[in-house]
Design a protein around this nucleic acid. Structure first.
Length: 1036
RNA sequence: GGGCGCUUAGCUCAGUUGGCUAGAGCAUCUCGUUUACACCGAGAGGGUCGGGGGUUCAAGUCCCUCAGCGCCCACCA
């Protein structure tokens, strides 16, 4: 035992122990009807890049749950895997392709690009799985899945086919966010709005054949002039007078409720509105009438007659009150176009240049066209005016270029029934969300029941399993349909047909634009190469698009278990037990998993969802790769160990707050820690403030910077955890040093000393609390409870007391049995949070004490990972013993305080007396030797009627007066100071109570129990005060 | 604009259904290497609980309001 080092060498142990667990296949779970399953599916990390501390938190919590449940005897399965993360991954790879080779994806082609992305995926998946292993995650690696692998693909195909058959999947036109640089759509949450300086242009559109008294032009305003080439109408409000009046009365109402700050502003707004009304109302009403009359205006530059239409999207209080309608390039205009049945003219190519619809502007970029359109209108005298204005510009998060709204064909999932089923699951509590407030965001989002657009114009993902062909007329539709249905294998192999009528009802326009009469879609429910070939041979082509990445993620809990195959795993492990994730994907992922699980398997995928806090940097911003404020968990593991990382994560997990984590750079040359500041956190190179040498950061991009040693990003928050790991390690080291001659035997109650009973009572309470807290996701509470038990109770008191008993041969055997038992229990309780150090100690303890136990002796499990979770024994719980022991602790603290204040040398022995009733006296008397050891103080006398020493320092607790004998030691000044301060404190407390008790209302309204408490409290304070005063009086 | 949170010691966070003198760790200061641990031990100082108002015998805790911060959703010709 002597050769055990005083510090836990985690870096050596982590690898060895992880291998040990894997060799024994402790992580591998197979269906076993004898055991109850407990299942968690990992929120699959994106293969975009490495994991940061947010993931570390997420995965730590999952592993804590899994390890605890495994110890509780459940058949625990933690299903690991990664997500292909569609656009994010493709964009990363494309960007790198551009940087390193100067190539675009079009240079490579689909197949080549996809194979490049697979390479990237292999690399990062490896890295991610490696990170998880280094964190100690006990995932069943044999079952590792990837959202794009064959098993998941089969589930995707089957699901799509099923929804297609139910007609819950359909194709329709939709405006998408088009990134003209990457030439792909981006989802709404990958679009950032940036405020930029722009202009507000006012154009005149000539009215065709104006009648007398009518305006000859209509003025419209826009921030995007080039889109006018695709205008198909000008809208006016159906009742501008009423609309203006409504706003006016709203403003007036607001004015009534307003405070003076707002008042001024509101008055101004009101004045402007009234002015406007005077100025514009008449002409707006006139235009409205013209619109109702079916009048047309001439769209300049392209010379296209377009109608005036009536729609309440045209707000009379904004702009000119009239609004140009460009259905194919603006989301709101698109809605107007649908309501008014307007043609939708797409003027843009995939690459952001203008197409043939734009006439002479064809081939120009949108920016160029903007300049030319404005200039040309100006020349024609149709530019009314130009205002400066701040405008919100949508930018692509990936390419940082402007997003263009663009009208395209997209596949949708009809959500009403699916969403309802997912709402029901939460409403009837078959899925419970913790903390419960997150139910609201889940339910609110689903309640909108907006159809889910699932196609993405990407190459990386599950390609949509639909083959289509446009038909020119009804006859062709019928003959093609007949041909398809008679294909060999069509009926037997799982295929379905849908007919999509054209979005353009007008035959002439269809002919003009080359649109089909209808499109025939065939969906195949599985990979069927022969059938696919046959379809292609009769002219059907497979959709180029892929599915939204969340489509496959939504199937994750059942696809990973083999669905649509009816596997044993699916039958046994599904539905899973709990889902642990972060709040930003409640709607994107959690809700969709619920509805897909219900649709596919007929059962919600999990019964509980725990939403954990988010990790923020020192400035309150969430960690993300793009901000450069992320921490690689491996940096923390290298410096503090995996257990410390996990401890830190669990400790910070409370259910109210996000976690703020200020970080530092560690200089790779001298180890100095530099605070991360807002300024230096995005710098590629930093000079160490201690040794002046430069080091690189994760932002290093130039070859010079990259060549520098990288400074790790770490947080001192983990120091506490590391220190605790070491504390536990050394407690076990103490045990090892004192277990010579250990022999196990049943320990009976009558053998136990008061401190044994106390520690067992504490242990029983802690087991109960910690189990409850962990089972209810209160990770922080559980860790705090265990920490104070291990450090304060076990180490600071129990072990100190045992030292005394180890030196007494008659007590040694019992002390050893107690020590091994408590340590054994501590290791089990800590194992889910700190698997490595507990396993290592378990091995060491097992060598010296393989048989352990109190009530019965048993051979313990070879490894703590599979040891039984402790159960709280009710017989041990004894609040009387605990309060008796508390008296000991308080007495000890009092003596130590007086020693410190009096500056008594540590080795100098002192004497003290205690005046207390016999009930308290007995246990304290029994512990007399511990005062000697732990405070170098001898208990001279104790009892109801003892005489305090002549010169003493008093300390008064409830029912307990402690007198430290200061004969020949006293520092009068220090003692006076202590007593005065103590007295003042007591006086303050007394004052509050006296005031309360003098208050008639308090006496009449407060419950008797509270009044009683106040009274006895005051009496005690009075007693203490008198003792202080008396002692002061005695001082010379 | 709508919604959900948050604001407690220099820092990071606890604080149950309102009820004894508001806690912990780090940092600071004092003392100490007594055979588990200096990644340690003993002790101390440090808070008008974001501001203002209200309900109550009693408010960190409940209500209103203002300010600041974070996140989600929607939207701005």
């Amino acid at each position: 035992a002597e050769e055990i080092p005083s510090r836990f060498d985690f870096s050596e142990a982590q690898q060895r122990l992880y291998q040990l667990w894997e060799q024994h296949e402790y992580f591998h779970a197979v269906p076993d009807p004898q055991k109850k399953p407990f299942t968690i599916v990992i929120p699959p990390p994106n293969v975009t890049g490495a994991l940061h501390l947010g993931h570390a938190l997420n995965n730590t919590l999952q592993d804590v749950q899994i390890r605890m449940k495994r110890m509780q005897g459940f058949n625990a399965l933690w299903m690991p895997g990664t997500d292909h993360a569609g656009i994010a991954t493709q964009a990363v790879v494309e960007r790198r392709l551009k940087e390193l080779e100067g190539l675009t994806r079009h240079d490579l082609g689909r197949e080549q690009l996809v194979s490049r992305i697979w390479q990237w995926k292999d690399e990062y998946e490896q890295r991610i799985l490696d990170q998880l292993k280094k964190m100690g995650c006990s995932c069943d690696w044999q079952r590792t899945r990837f959202t794009l692998d064959e098993m998941c693909a089969a589930a995707v195909r089957q699901t799509f086919f099923d929804l297609f058959q139910k007609h819950w999947i359909y194709r329709s036109k939709r405006l998408v966010n088009w990134d003209t640089f990457l030439q792909t759509t981006v989802s709404d949450d990958e679009v950032n709005n940036e405020t930029v300086k722009g202009n507000f242009w006012h154009f005149r559109y000539p009215v065709i054949a104006p009648q007398a008294g009518e305006p000859s032009t209509v003025i419209v305003a826009t921030t995007r002039p080039e889109t006018m080439l695709g205008d198909t109408a000008v809208a006016v409000h159906p009742d501008p007078a009423a609309a203006l009046a409504a706003i006016e009365s709203e403003l007036q109402q607001a004015l009534v409720d307003a405070n003076c700050n707002e008042k001024h502003q509101l008055e101004e707004q009101l004045r402007a509105l009234q002015e406007r009304r005077q100025l514009m109302l008449k002409s707006l009403e006139q235009l409205r009438d013209m619109a109702l009359d079916g009048r047309l205006v001439m769209l300049p530059l392209v010379d296209r007659p377009i109608p005036l239409v009536v729609d309440d999207w045209a707000k009379p209080e904004l702009g000119t009150g009239c609004v140009k309608i460009t259905p194919a390039h603006d989301p709101n205009d698109y809605e107007v176009g649908r309501r008014c049945q307007l043609p939708m003219i797409n003027i843009m190519n995939r690459d952001g240049t203008l197409n043939a619809e734009a006439g002479k502007y064809q081939g120009m970029s949108m920016q160029q066209a903007r300049k030319d359109v404005v200039a040309d209108l100006d020349r024609l005298g149709l530019l009314d005016k130009v205002e400066d204005r701040d405008i919100e510009m949508p930018l692509s998060d990936r390419s940082k270029t402007a997003i263009e709204p663009w009208l395209t064909d997209q596949w949708f999932i009809q959500m009403d029934e699916l969403a309802q089923s997912a709402m029901d699951a939460v409403n009837d509590q078959s899925v419970q969300i913790f903390p419960p407030r997150y139910q609201t965001s889940y339910l609110d989002w689903l309640a909108e029941k907006r159809d889910w657009p699932v196609s993405r114009q990407l190459w990386w993902g599950h390609q949509i399993p639909v083959w289509s062909k446009g038909c020119a007329d009804q006859a062709e539709v019928e003959s093609l349909q007949h041909k398809i249905k008679s294909l060999a294998g069509f009926k037997t192999e799982g295929a379905a047909v849908q007919i999509e009528p054209s979005s353009e009802p007008d035959a002439e326009r269809r002919a003009l634009l080359g649109l089909p009469f209808a499109t025939l879609h065939v969906c195949l429910g599985a990979d069927l190469p022969e059938l696919e070939q046959q379809l292609e041979s009769i002219g059907l082509n497979r959709d180029e698009d892929v599915l939204d990445t969340w489509f496959s993620s939504a199937l994750w809990p059942h696809s990973t278990l083999g669905w649509p195959q009816q596997t044993d795993e699916l039958a046994y492990f599904y539905p899973t037990s709990t889902l642990i994730t972060s709040r930003d994907i409640i709607s994107l992922w959690v809700a969709r998993m619920v509805l897909m699980g219900l649709n596919n398997v007929g059962h919600a995928p999990f019964s509980e969802v725990f939403i954990h806090p988010k990790i923020q940097d020192g400035f309150g911003e969430t960690m993300s790769k793009s901000k450069g404020n992320g921490i690689d968990p491996l940096d923390v593991i290298d410096k503090f160990g995996a257990d410390a990382l996990r401890y830190g994560m669990a400790h910070l997990t409370t259910d109210t707050q996000d976690v703020r984590m200020p970080v530092q750079y560690e200089c790779p040359h001298c180890g100095h820690l530099l605070d991360q500041t807002k300024k230096n956190r995005t710098q590629p190179r930093i000079d160490c403030s201690a040794c002046q040498q430069p080091f690189g950061t994760q932002w290093a991009s130039t070859p010079d910077d990259k060549a520098l040693a990288r400074g790790a990003v770490i947080s001192e928050r983990f120091e506490v955890a590391r220190n605790f790991v070491n504390k536990l390690w050394n407690a076990s080291r103490f045990a090892m040093l004192n277990l010579d001659g250990y022999c196990p035997a049943v320990v009976t109650d009558d053998q136990l000393l008061i401190e044994d009973k106390w520690i067992l009572s504490r242990l029983a309470n802690v087991i109960q609390t910690v189990t409850h807290k962990l089972e209810h996701y209160h990770f922080g509470d559980a860790v705090r409870e265990l920490y104070s038990f291990a450090w304060d109770d076990f180490c600071s008191f129990y072990l100190e007391i045992l030292k005394e008993r180890f030196s007494d041969p008659s007590q040694r055997a019992l002390a050893q049995r107690m020590l091994t038992f408590i340590l054994d229990q501590l290791l089990r309780l800590w194992h889910p949070v700190m698997p490595f150090v507990t396993e290592e100690i378990w091995q060491n303890l097992g060598r010296l004490a393989p048989l352990r136990g109190l009530n019965e002796i048993e051979t313990v499990a070879a490894h703590v990972i599979v040891a039984a979770w402790p159960t709280a024994s009710a017989e041990w719980q004894d609040s009387r013993i605990e309060s008796q022991f508390d008296l000991f602790k308080q007495t000890l603290a009092a003596i130590r305080e007086i020693r410190a204040k009096q500056n008594i040398p540590p080795k100098k022995e002192i004497k003290f007396s205690i005046r207390t009733p016999a009930d308290n006296a007995r246990p304290l008397q029994e512990m007399a030797s511990y005062f000697k050891r732990m405070a170098a103080a001898e208990l001279a006398s104790i009892g109801d009627d003892i005489q305090p020493p002549a010169i003493n320092a008093p300390f008064v607790l409830s029912d307990l007066e402690i007198y430290v004998d200061l004969e020949g030691l006293i520092d009068f000044a220090a003692e006076r100071k202590r007593l005065e301060k103590e007295k003042a404190k007591i006086e303050g407390a007394m004052k509050g109570r006296q005031a309360k008790l003098a208050n008639e209302k308090f006496l009449s309204s407060a419950p008797a129990e509270i009044i009683d408490r106040e009274k006895t409290g005051l009496a005690q304070l009075q007693e203490q005060w008198e003792a202080m005063q008396a002692a002061l009086d005695r001082l010379p």
